[in-house]
Design a binder for these strands. Structure first.
Length: 877
RNA sequence: GCCCACGUGGCGGAAUCGGUAGACGCCACGGACUUAAAAUCCGUUGAUCGUAAGGUCGUCCCGGUUCAACUCCGGGCGUGGGCACCA
């Protein structure tokens, strides 16, 4: 369907002035979405010959509506998937639903809808919204983690880990709401109180299930090196810190008047002669025993336990302690130092007890000042002599030891080794390696999760559910009220018999952390219809994921749990590769200003009024506090609904704006006004391509033309192809788009400057090459409009089956270059020289510039710095 | 508190390996077209001095390295994210 221009002689109208068909995104977008679906254009089938490319985006929690963070994540993912397809790869690009979790239970409590009903209707709604974005998913591999099948296979995987010895049970602390009789998540604890009941939250110990991630600590740390080229430095460093490997000394203090000892772990053995007291956690066995006979101690411990379980809450505390009255005996000096119970010592790190060196540890320093304990300096920094009485903070840097007997005069790094050696020689301590990483507690006392397939038998103890009896199904008839544990309260569900001895037994009523589901969904996508947990051959065909795209907020937990789970499954023989995600792109968050009224709380933008420089609440006229950009969230009323943009401007405009507004790793401040710019550009593109389609057909240029303006336009085309190809691969989508904008602008300028009658076949060929290149290059960004324009350019085959354009090296050859001439580093002139000009020629031309001559008057050139292709700098006195 | 980032015009951002600061876009202003409006097109747009040519200053702040610093180093200030039961 070529549209040849009927050129009636004497017609004064140029083709630019004719009425053109308007760009109508709604019509075009649904047309091509239907086309792709009917043609199954994005279905991924395992192929032996073509190179595979697994592009994964983090699957969403089905909250019911997509938000801007989703739009950003999935637009980036789709761009990369479509790019790799155009480059000839066999791309797997799946989508699914992270469907278990607390919001479904909250909805059930508030609205009475069953979590399953609520979740599946949300999935329906979100699938429709995602479809309207034109994302190139293979929907045949779609999965929902709350699906009974998925839960079944996950229970089977859990049992495999159990057989491997990676699952165990131990006491662990939770946030306990004494009114609702339920366990609270950290986010449900607000200022130390339960979010629903308002009751003061307590720390309570429960017996819970754990996965032994610490067994893989060393491999998880070591594996980060393998990811050096594919993962952002920041994520690797966060994970490495999270694992927190440290080398140190473990030794025990004797306790005066007791047979017991107090084991401690320290990473600073060089400061061991500066110990002036010891601190133990509130949960330390020694603390408990003291409390059993001492009311004051018990009260102190209880106060410590009214803090919540998050590390942040504990670390922000004012440092407080309680003297136990016990004295610890220093193993090297025999000196007696007091033992305190301290609210900032963590039971689950090291031994739950620490030696305190206030001169060289900030927390110990603050503690010592509060309780007037002695401070003993044992490391002197170079050139300074520290006086404990004068110190305002601990000194934690390097230095030379003092007051340390035989170790005086040693550099502290050397001293670490010598002191460890001394402890080992006297058989009072050991060099040890510690990890900050703790085992992964997967027990949740909630309904909307996957039941842990275990049975408690009064005779046999804990017995796993046999594989042939799986799945343990979630009962549908539960009452969700927000208090208690729904599965535990169910009248019959937990009643069963022991698989070993057949006596009456009860099921485990804990469900799994939802991070379990997201730890293997990428493997399940490879074989979504398999009747069993995983089809090893297909998993190994697609794995590892070549590119993973998701939010930076998952840098540690999800990405570390998934790496661990993957390695554990590898050791069960279910997958071959060591690391699941070869490359990772972490996108920044989408943020927006927040408005808060002192009276009415968070306000929507339409609920405030601007007057002069300030904003006021429409309801009460109170002055609004404008929060600087915060992560978009419903509770803060700063959410922009992507559907408004998609319905108003079309998905292509929404996608283009998202990608153009900021590079993906950076946070994005949402600002509607930029959307118009994206819309205008697509309209300019639309008009240009329809104009070109209307011109007499010439095949796209394949060689350099003679005419200067055409040479320039063709060079620009190939520079753009080159730049977009490189920018997409380095995730600089905004600059890739601006490069195509420049090309489209250049083509328009050429069109405007060239009379219709002056168009030669050569010119038409260059123009068609521009048009086809621009459409191809933009396809991964704005797939609908480019499919339509490709069709209008006369192509029978869809654009999604084309190949990415190739750069013509000849078109990139520069004939002349512009150099900057500096004098003492300041720009004084610009010089255009032939590309092959010699340094002598360049200098002669530079010295001929009047501006340069003026600067060189009465000065002597002492040096010249020539950066080829860039600048020449004269250094003068 | 600890860990990790980030800070460039009125705004989003660009400058890929230490080498032209402000590409591209938004906003604003001026103009063309139109009976008018919308749309579109053309132009101006970091600050400051100057009629102009041109000069000076300028990438959060202070200091350093270098012929040359948005970029590297040290110190500070500010903002954002994570902190193990939100996902």
């Amino acid at each position: 369907m070529f549209h040849y221009l009927q050129k009636a002689s004497g017609n004064p109208m140029s083709e630019r002035e004719r009425v053109r068909e308007k760009y109508n995104p709604q019509a075009i977008e649904s047309k091509w979405q239907n086309f792709w679906e009917e043609q199954q254009s994005f279905r991924a089938v395992e192929e032996a010959e073509r190179e595979k490319y697994y592009l994964l985006v983090m699957f969403p929690y089905p909250s019911g509506r997509i938000h801007m963070g989703h739009v950003r994540n999935y637009t980036i993912g789709d761009l990369l998937a479509r790019f790799q397809r155009l480059r000839g790869k066999n791309v797997l690009h799946p989508m699914g639903w992270d469907a278990f979790g607390m919001p479904a239970e909250n909805a059930a409590i508030q609205k009475g809808t069953h979590p399953r009903t609520w979740t599946y209707s949300n999935i329906e709604a979100m699938r429709r919204e995602l479809r309207s974005m034109g994302l190139s998913y293979d929907w045949q591999r779609e999965l929902a983690t709350c699906d009974p099948q998925y839960a079944h296979w996950e229970q089977e995987l859990f049992l495999k880990l159990y057989e491997k010895g990676l699952v165990y049970r131990k006491l662990s602390q939770v946030n306990w709401d004494p009114v609702d009789q339920t366990v609270l998540a950290n986010e449900q604890v607000i200022d130390g109180k339960g979010w629903r009941s308002g009751a003061v939250v307590e720390r309570r110990e429960l017996s819970q299930w754990f996965l032994k991630i610490t067994a893989y600590a060393e491999e998880l740390l070591d594996g980060l090196r393998q990811l050096e080229n594919g993962w952002p430095e920041t994520v690797r460093s966060m994970q490495s810190h999270w694992i927190g490997k440290s080398h140190g000394l473990e030794f025990a203090f004797a306790i005066e008047g007791s047979d017991e000892t107090l084991p401690v772990y320290t990473t600073r053995p060089d400061t061991v002669m500066g110990v002036t007291f010891c601190s133990i956690a509130a949960e330390h066995p020694l603390a408990r025993r003291i409390a059993s006979a001492n009311g004051a101690a018990q009260a102190f411990i209880q106060a410590c336990q009214s803090v919540g379980t998050s590390e942040e809450a504990i670390e922000r505390l004012e440092k407080k302690g309680f003297p136990t009255g016990l004295q610890a005996i220093h193993p090297l000096t025999g000196e007696r130092v007091p033992i305190f119970i301290a609210n900032f010592v963590l039971m689950n790190y090291g031994t739950g007890a620490v030696m305190a060196v206030p001169a060289h540890d900030q927390r110990d320093f603050e503690f010592a000042r509060t309780y007037r304990l002695p401070i003993r300096v044992v490391i002197q920094p170079p050139g300074v002599t520290l006086d404990p009485a004068e110190m305002s903070e601990a000194y934690t840097g390097p230095g030379v030891l003092c007051h340390s007997g035989p170790f005086d005069g040693l550099e502290n790094e050397t001293a670490k080794e010598k002191i460890i050696a001394a402890f080992v020689a006297q058989k009072v301590g050991n060099a040890t390696t510690q990890y900050r990483l703790r085992d992964w507690g997967i027990s949740r006392q909630r309904y909307w999760g996957n039941p842990i397939p275990m049975i408690h038998c009064p005779q046999c103890g804990i017995v796993p559910v046999p594989v042939e009896q799986l799945p343990v199904p979630l009962p549908d008839d539960v009452e969700l009220t927000g208090s208690g544990n729904p599965l535990a309260r169910h009248p019959t569900w937990k009643q069963t018999s022991c698989p070993r001895c057949s006596t009456a037994a009860v099921r485990e009523t804990d469900t799994m952390d939802t991070f379990a589901e997201s730890s293997w969904y990428f493997l399940r996508y490879c074989c979504a219809d398999h009747d069993g947990p995983l089809d090893v051959a297909r998993v190994n065909h697609w794995m590892p994921v070549d590119q993973y795209v998701g939010g930076i907020e998952h840098a540690v937990l999800h990405l570390l749990y998934a790496r661990f789970f993957h390695k554990a499954l590898r050791d069960c023989g279910l997958v071959a590769c060591d690391e699941p995600f070869s490359r990772l792109l972490t996108q920044g968050m989408v943020r927006k200003d927040t408005f808060r009224c002192p009276e009415h709380g968070w306000r929507y933008p339409e609920e405030v009024r601007q007057q002069a420089d300030a904003l006021y609440c429409l309801q009460c006229n109170a002055r609004i506090q404008v929060g600087r950009n915060e992560k978009m969230s419903k509770s803060k009323h700063n959410v922009v609904d992507p559907n408004d943009i998609i319905q108003g401007y079309g998905a292509d405009t929404a996608r283009l704006f998202m990608l153009f507004a900021a590079p993906p790793e950076q946070d994005l401040e949402w600002n509607d006004s930029g959307v118009d710019g994206a819309w205008r550009f697509l309209n300019r593109l639309w008009r240009l391509i329809l104009d070109v389609a209307d011109l007499p057909y010439q095949p796209p240029a394949r060689t350099m033309p003679e005419q200067a303006d055409l040479r320039a336009l063709r060079s620009k085309t190939h520079e753009t192809i080159d730049k977009v190809s490189r920018d997409v691969q380095r995730f600089q989508f905004n600059t890739a788009i601006s490069a195509v904008m420049e090309l489209v602008n250049a083509a328009n300028e050429w069109q405007n400057a060239t009379q219709e009658g002056q168009r030669t076949p050569e010119g038409l060929a260059v123009l068609r090459e521009v048009a086809e290149s621009a459409v191809l290059l933009l396809n991964p960004f704005v797939p609908h409009i480019t499919e339509e324009l490709w069709h209008r350019l006369g192509h029978a085959q869809p654009l999604c089956q084309q190949r990415w354009p190739e750069v013509d090296a000849e078109a990139l050859q520069r004939e002349s270059i512009t150099l900057v001439i500096q004098v003492n580093g300041k720009l004084r002139a610009r010089l255009t020289v032939a590309a092959e000009a010699t340094p002598e020629q360049i200098e002669a031309a530079a010295l001929a510039e009047p501006a340069v001559q003026q600067q060189l008057l009465n000065r002597t050139i002492r040096n010249r710095i020539l950066v080829p292709g860039r600048l020449l700098n004269f250094v003068v006195n």
